[in-house]
Design a protein around this nucleic acid. Structure first.
Length: 458
RNA sequence: GGCGACGUGGCCGACUGGCUAGGCACGGGCCUGCAAAGCCCUUUAAUCGGGUUCGAUUCCCGACGUCGCCUCCA
């Protein structure tokens, strides 16, 4: 039984599915107004790992992840750069999915856009007003947090506690708000701003409403899991929940949040601190699989330090697995070879580890152990080797870790490798060394074995 | 001020009330024409002070330190 920490109850508990065998998940996607950063990368990778693992377990996962394509920041940037806001959102979205592709993150099953759901948001806000949970002011429509009995359930703080000591903080929004924590559901537009009609006046959606509407619309009430970065816990997720509760609807039944990405000093990577690292830069500089590897070796709820040293060591660890894939190539158990059943005990242990709150660090330790056992078995020519090799491929696949050389070995390099084998067979070691250096200069890691030269990208 | 997390070996980073996490780096060996890869071996741990316990890095309390959230950040 797969168990997962639930932010709401603060305990690791079984992840229950409305329809056993089918998991309905909502993941808060990006607001498309800039390039993706490391934090986005972590969140998408964590949930991609969750998804792939559960699918590997035979569960059908429906993953809905939105694109928020209308927001103040988008409008600000459009004004600043004097171009249509749709131009920004379209470009950013394409950059986003391109980056996700390079990370090996599967596209969500559904990608709803906020702008496609404005009518439904208007309907929802209307209902909230009718139920007495929302009210209009001169600049928009606000949700009354006091009308939500358990407001603060996710933050694990009462409204009073949240207000305590926060007096020096600037209260955003109109003075007309009934409570400082009330938040805008609808914002009246100024001339020239994008706007949609509503019974209260032309405007645009405020905060957090799109996720409520889209998750309930696509997944229905009481859907299984809602996830996102730890920074979304409050206020974003709290306020989503508040709207659903005020509507009288059952919202997500399990909440999952991944930890922050921190810089070398251990400080949270944040836009306001200006210490964000562009995800695209990381992807350009390193093997894109390295970030996945680094995250697999860290528990999803722990903060992760992303720096040169860290990534380097992940690249090296990946190199070890690639070598394993290279040397086990063609052996029973390898993808190309005749199908051999993966070692059942090894997989059972893997499942046991992963089912305990997505314990990927221990799963990786288990994979490395299996690699060692497989290597030993290969060296000894033992029959179990095939089953162990198959197990490694199975487990890595379940985590979305693609093994093998990055990039194709081109024909020229392959020819050099053959020449190298020939030189070694002829005991012309001077020529062999020269060929090896040539290949290394081309960026290959060259492994000469009795079975022939294996090349992989370094 | 409120709520919460964390402090592990050279670095990163887990689990765990007693039994080697793992990765990376370092050293020694085997293998190799030499390397690489692989295998074997060796070596460094739990911020501090109390308590519970036969036994605590692990549970409890306190101190110190770091970090996060307390309205638009993944």
């Amino acid at each position: 039984m797969f168990a997962l920490y639930d932010t709401l109850t603060r305990e690791v508990r079984p992840l229950q599915m409305r329809k056993p065998g089918n998991l309905d998940v909502y993941l808060c996607g990006p607001t498309v107004y800039g390039p993706p950063h490391l934090g986005h990368g972590r969140a998408t990778l964590v949930y991609d790992i969750l998804r792939r693992y559960l699918e590997w377990r035979g569960i059908e996962v429906r993953l809905v992840s939105n694109i928020t394509d209308i927001d103040d920041k988008i409008i600000d940037r459009a004004n600043r750069e004097r171009r249509p806001w749709q131009d920004i959102t379209q470009k950013c979205e394409s950059v986003w999915f391109d980056a996700m592709g390079r990370l090996g993150v599967k596209r969500p099953t559904d990608v709803p856009h906020a702008t496609e759901y404005v009518d439904q948001m208007v309907d929802m806000i209307d209902t909230l007003i009718t139920r007495g949970a929302a009210y209009t002011t001169s600049d928009g429509v606000y949700l009354s947090v006091e009308s939500v009995p358990d407001y603060g359930a996710l933050a694990h703080q009462s409204l009073e506690d949240m207000m305590a000591g926060g007096g020096d903080r600037e209260v955003l929004g109109a003075q007309e708000k009934r409570h400082p924590s009330d938040f805008a559901l609808w914002k009246f537009s100024k001339p020239g701003e994008p706007s949609w009609p509503s019974p209260w006046g032309d405007g645009r959606p405020g905060w957090h409403s799109e996720c409520v509407v889209m998750s309930l619309e696509l997944l229905g009430e009481g859907f299984d899991l809602h996830c996102g970065g730890a920074d979304l816990r409050f206020p974003h997720h709290e306020n989503e929940r508040a709207q659903a509760v005020a509507l009288g609807k059952t919202f997500a039944r399990h909440w999952m949040h991944n930890g922050f990405v921190v810089d070398i000093e251990g400080e949270k990577m944040s836009k306001s601190l200006g210490n964000v690292t562009n995800l695209l830069d990381l992807l350009d500089q390193f093997d894109p699989r390295a970030y996945r590897m680094l995250l697999l070796q860290t528990h999803y709820r722990s903060p992760v330090k992303v720096g040169q040293d860290n990534i380097d060591s992940s690249v090296k660890a990946l190199g070890g697995l690639d070598s394993f894939a290279a040397r086990s190539h063609g052996l029973p158990g390898d993808h190309g070879a005749a199908r051999v059943l993966a070692d059942a005990d090894t997989l059972a242990r893997f499942v046991q580890i992963m089912d305990n709150d997505l314990d990927t660090p221990n799963a990786m330790a288990h994979i490395f152990d299996t690699v060692r056992r497989a290597n030993t078995a290969i060296d000894a020519g033992e029959a179990v080797a095939g089953a162990l090799v198959a197990a490694v491929h199975e487990m890595c696949g379940a985590l979305g870790l693609q093994l093998g050389s990055r990039g194709e070995v081109d024909a020229d390099a392959q020819a050099l490798a053959s020449a190298l084998d020939a030189a070694r067979a002829a005991k012309d070691f001077a020529k062999a060394d020269a060929l090896r250096h040539e290949l290394q200069a081309l960026g290959y890691v060259v492994e000469t074995t009795k079975a022939g030269t294996a090349l992989r990208r370094g």
